[in-house]
Design a protein around this nucleic acid. Structure first.
Lengths: 162, 162
DNA sequence: ATAATAACGGATATATAATATCCGTAAATA
DNA sequence: TATTTACGGATATTATATATCCGTTATTAT
């Protein structure tokens, strides 16, 4: 199993949006350019972020995407769920009820113990992701990004944001 | 993203093997019958368990699969990794280095902070799965399985184990 | 010996999901 | 009015998961 690559893209894009001036927006085309990603497919993911309410979108010239709220109030989990959906990764197909020994579904009071174990692990995963804010991500990015890249990024932003 | 359905199958199968008499083994065909699963495909997963060293296999009549060690010494994580592989779910494609602002790969001392965050969450998931032993799974199964099903299972085992 | 059982590995087919592109529409700006 | 941009739907392509089949080998029972 592999996680949707769009998750990586979306977190990086949100991190960029977080470091933009308050009133600035970036269109999908520019974000795709910045990371050298397929423009139209990235646009789909950005629309998912928009539908999840994480970013606001504006049409027309000067439009594009910006964060809908402060980066400190957006978690990595928010972004992951926006892209990957909220369905649990582990899907219980109730095979305990199948076969020659299975009995009537009504006889089972609780969800299968195996499913509960898998869901508990998934909760631990989500809890960890929920504990990380987009602000922390961008702060770490600022600290660890090579200074040359920071400079080049600033110049690119300068050119792009009119 | 959806987890491999074989994970569910494998944990259930291991749980059944754990509740078998010490010297008994079950062939893939019987396990598939017990859970009404596709025989040949289940066999692939059982072979993966065998390669991971979780079960021992024996060819020929009376052969089949049995646990290689006590259920208390097998974790749910062991089974999950045997089926799903040990690769992390989140694959970092280093998009931070791409595009007009990217700089030479050698400039980056650490893995990307976003990847580290995703991997930390994955570790939380694995830690939780590693904290659950197969014995706990089977104990919970014994407690929560309807008594009628327990009876039917016992009868089925009796017929199958010679 | 022979026949039957069963794991194993490789090859292949099918179904589903991820990846990617394209198009028409609507909205906003200049 | 022309341009830019988001948005939704349709479609194509690729990768992965699901599933089957076959030949080989090992083991057991007759």
């Amino acid at each position: 199993m592999k996680l949707n690559e769009g998750i990586e893209w979306a977190i990086h894009c949100c991190s960029i949006l977080a470091s933009l001036p308050e009133d600035a927006a970036l269109p999908a085309r520019r974000l795709a350019e910045f990371f050298d990603l397929p423009e139209h497919y990235l646009a789909k993911h950005l629309q998912a972020l928009s539908q999840a309410g994480l970013v606001n979108s504006a049409k027309g010239p000067g439009g594009g995407y910006r964060l809908s709220r402060p980066a400190a109030n957006i978690t990595v989990l928010d972004i992951v769920l926006a892209i990957d959906g909220t369905e649990p990764h582990f899907q219980c197909t109730e095979i305990r009820r199948k076969g020659p020994s299975g009995v009537d579904p009504a006889c089972y009071s609780k969800p299968c113990g195996i499913a509960r174990a898998m869901w508990r692990a998934e909760k631990a995963w989500r809890d960890e992701l929920a504990s990380i804010s987009l602000k922390e991500i961008t702060d770490i990015g600022m600290q660890e990004t090579p200074s040359l890249q920071i400079e080049k990024s600033m110049e690119w932003f300068g050119n792009v944001l009119k």
